[in-house]
Each structure stands twice: as C-alpha cells, then as structure tokens.
Write a protein that binds this DNA or RNA. Sequence first.
DNA 1: AATCAATAGTTGATATATCAATTGTTGGTA
DNA 2: TACCAACAATTGATATATCAACTATTGATT
Lengths: 146, 146
Amino acid sequence: MEKLTTSFFYNLEKTVKIYRQFFQNQFKINGFDITLDQWLILNTVAEYPDCTQNDIAEKVFKDKASVTRIIELLVQNGFLLRDIHPTNRRMFQLTITEKGLETIEKLTELVPQIRQKALEGIEPASVSAAQEMLAMIVQNCIPTSS
Amino acid sequence: MEKLTTSFFYNLEKTVKIYRQFFQNQFKINGFDITLDQWLILNTVAEYPDCTQNDIAEKVFKDKASVTRIIELLVQNGFLLRDIHPTNRRMFQLTITEKGLETIEKLTELVPQIRQKALEGIEPASVSAAQEMLAMIVQNCIPTSS
DNA sequence: AATCAATAGTTGATATATCAATTGTTGGTA
DNA sequence: TACCAACAATTGATATATCAACTATTGATT
C-alpha cells in the first residue's frame, strides 16, 4: 500500500487543516472573535434568511446537530437572535444582530483576501481543474448517487 | 465576494467530509469496528514502532492531545498495548496486539480499494497536478515557512 | 550534585462531527 | 375529527480538534 504521507487524501486533509488554521489565525490577527464555522453559518443565514436550520445544514454540509450548536453559540455571542417563527412553530426565526451585520460586512472584505493569499501563485486554470476533480470524487463517494 | 458554495475551499472541505464518510462506511460494511483516525494512528505506529507520540502527531498532522486520546481508545479497544518505555520514562512503549495486527493486515488490502473507488475515472495526471497545488497552498498557509 | 531548559505526555476547556433517539408541530388522510 | 407520517429542531453519547496549562523526566550546564 501507498505510504500514508503520499496518499492523495492524506494531503487533502492536511491542506484543509492548515488552511483552516491559517484562516482562523487571520480572523484572530484582525480582531475577529468568531470561529470559521460560526462565520460560515452566520454568512449562510445572511444569504438565505428564511431557511430552516436543516436547509442551512445541507448548504454548509454540516450535520443538523452541529448547526443547532453553532447557532447556539452565535446567539450566546451576540451575532444572532433566535425567536419563535411567526407561522411555523417547528422553526425558528433567525435575525442577525447589529454586531452580526458589522462582522459580516467586515469579513466580506477580509475573507477574499485570505483566500487569495492561500491561493497565491496558483493558476486559476489549476483551481478549476482541481474543482472538477473534487466534484468527481464527491460523485464517487456519495452513497445514494441520486 | 464569491458565493460560498463555489469557493474552492468550501469544495475542498466538502470533499474531505464526503470522502471520510465514504471511507468510514466502507470500514463498517466490511465489519471493521475502528474509526478512520484510529486506523491512521494504528498504522503509523506499525510503520514507525519507535516513534514518540509527538512524532506520530506530527506525521499524521494531528495535535498531540488528539493522539493521546486516540491511543487511549486504541488501547481500550484492544488494538494496542501501552507500557512504560524501558529506557526513557517520559515515553511509552507501544505494542500492537494480535487483533491490531490482523486489523492492519486486512485493512492494508481494503484501504487501497477504497481509495481507488474514490478516485475512479480520474486521470493520474490530474491527481498529481492537484497534489502539487495542495502543496503550494500548504506553503502559502504555513505560519513560519521554515 | 544542584539547577534548569527542553522533552514527552496528560488534562481541562471549548468547539465541532456524527449518529441515534426524542420532542413538538404540521399536514394529509381515513 | 382522530390518527399518523413527515418535518424541524434538540439532546445525549462518543470521537476528534485545538489551545493552554500542567506533571514528570531527561540531559546539559554550572
């Protein structure tokens, strides 16, 4: 068997981890007290304000239980409000606070810079090629390839 | 800003997650009661029997605290023995049990098949190209690029 | 030999992932 | 209307990630 350290998936995981650390560190350096995953959820709420939590979970590719807990923290930390939904009591009405909006706004500036730094020196064509490849892997791995 | 779902790193994370689920599920289907991460550590102990846990952590790109806990579970589940090291009492002497050896042996057959399924229909050249790209990202993101 | 920095590992706290079981709600249907 | 399947979300249990603080040991230096 191929050595672990040369296997493609090992490198994939390694890259994701280093990138996450880099990303999180850039948040910290720039004075943002929010985790990458919390930002991801907050941002998704902003993009799709009327989504159910389950929809959000699907969009960000997280478990719904994770989303519940991340939203809990976003509420605790003052980025989000969670109220009973006016028409469907199974759902919650999520509202982004002032602090949340400011954070999103500022991070909308910062995040592309972080991404760009991470991809520095890499041809856009390589990125596209890699994207296609990742999509293919997902196809191969998805359980019910519906 | 680019939509989240089209960002390269979003797809990177998504792929890793789906691949991990696929991998773990293949373990389950084939009757292995071990997690992907536990297998990773077990395998690394097999490859480098005299490593410190810190070395292992570095090799598999995990935190040393994570390694401590994963090894704990490997011991609990009968894959590993942990004894006092004969010459250096700071370290532990890790020994793979019979069950551990059998598991490694069988998984050494299975794992390449899983990897291959995941990469089905993808040119080896694309894989290499992607590997290079990942290495470049790592370079860009590593804090002290020593 | 006494001291001390470096090393190996653990532990605690918090965040997230995953699966399964559970609660409460809604909407359709017998 | 009473029932029930589907839906939305939570909760519990366990595994892992990450950071920081901590213990014990070793090796080098004085």
